[in-house]
Computed example of a mutant assay.
Amino acid sequence: MDRSLRCFTGAGYDKGRPLLVQAAWFAVLNLVFVRWWLPARWRPALLRAFGARIGQRVLIRHRVRVHWPWRLEVGDDVWIGEGAWLLNLERITIGSNVCVSQEAFLCTGSHQRRSATFEFDNAPICLESGAWVAARAVVLRGVTVGRGAVVGASAVARRDVGPGAVITTGAAA
Results as ranks from 00 to 15, higher is better:
residue 130 G to L: 06
residue 38 L to W: 02
residue 45 A to C: 10
residue 40 A to T: 11
residue 64 V to S: 08
residue 100 V to K: 10
residue 123 A to N: 03
residue 30 N to M: 07
residue 43 R to A: 08
residue 29 L to C: 11
residue 53 R to K: 11
residue 45 A to Q: 15
residue 117 T to R: 12
residue 127 L to E: 01
residue 52 A to V: 11
residue 46 L to T: 11
residue 70 W to N: 07
residue 82 E to D: 14
residue 45 A to F: 09
residue 83 G to H: 03
residue 24 A to G: 10
residue 66 V to T: 05
residue 71 R to C: 05
residue 131 A to K: 01
residue 33 F to M: 10
residue 80 I to S: 12
residue 77 D to G: 09
residue 89 L to N: 11
residue 107 C to Q: 01
residue 133 V to N: 04
residue 101 S to P: 03
residue 130 G to M: 06
residue 108 T to K: 00
residue 25 W to A: 04
residue 50 F to D: 03
residue 112 Q to N: 13
residue 122 N to F: 12
residue 91 R to P: 15
residue 48 R to L: 01
residue 72 L to K: 08
residue 30 N to K: 09
residue 39 P to A: 00
residue 31 L to P: 00
residue 37 W to M: 01
residue 96 S to F: 15
residue 53 R to V: 13
residue 129 S to M: 04
residue 57 R to S: 15
residue 101 S to C: 15
residue 51 G to H: 01
residue 65 R to C: 02
residue 62 H to E: 15
residue 103 E to P: 01
residue 60 I to Q: 10
residue 45 A to S: 13
residue 24 A to D: 02
residue 74 V to I: 15
residue 60 I to P: 11
residue 73 E to K: 11
residue 133 V to G: 03
residue 111 H to Y: 04
residue 62 H to N: 15
residue 66 V to W: 05
residue 115 S to G: 04
residue 90 E to G: 02
residue 110 S to H: 04
residue 108 T to G: 02
residue 100 V to A: 05
residue 77 D to V: 08
residue 33 F to A: 13
residue 46 L to A: 08
residue 96 S to M: 09
residue 105 F to A: 03
residue 115 S to N: 11
residue 110 S to I: 03
residue 115 S to F: 00
residue 72 L to R: 05
residue 114 R to Q: 13
residue 86 L to F: 00
residue 70 W to M: 06
residue 93 T to P: 01
residue 94 I to N: 07
residue 55 G to Q: 12
residue 25 W to H: 05
residue 111 H to R: 01
residue 43 R to G: 11
residue 106 L to R: 00
residue 69 P to G: 05
residue 60 I to W: 09
residue 28 V to H: 02
residue 87 L to I: 11
residue 82 E to F: 10
residue 79 W to S: 13
residue 42 W to C: 15
residue 81 G to Y: 04
residue 35 R to P: 07
residue 83 G to A: 07
residue 67 H to L: 13
residue 61 R to H: 14
residue 67 H to A: 10
residue 119 E to L: 00
residue 44 P to T: 11
residue 128 E to M: 06
residue 52 A to S: 12
residue 96 S to R: 12
residue 103 E to Q: 14
residue 51 G to F: 03
residue 125 I to P: 02
residue 128 E to H: 06
residue 63 R to N: 14
residue 108 T to I: 00
residue 35 R to E: 13
residue 52 A to P: 08
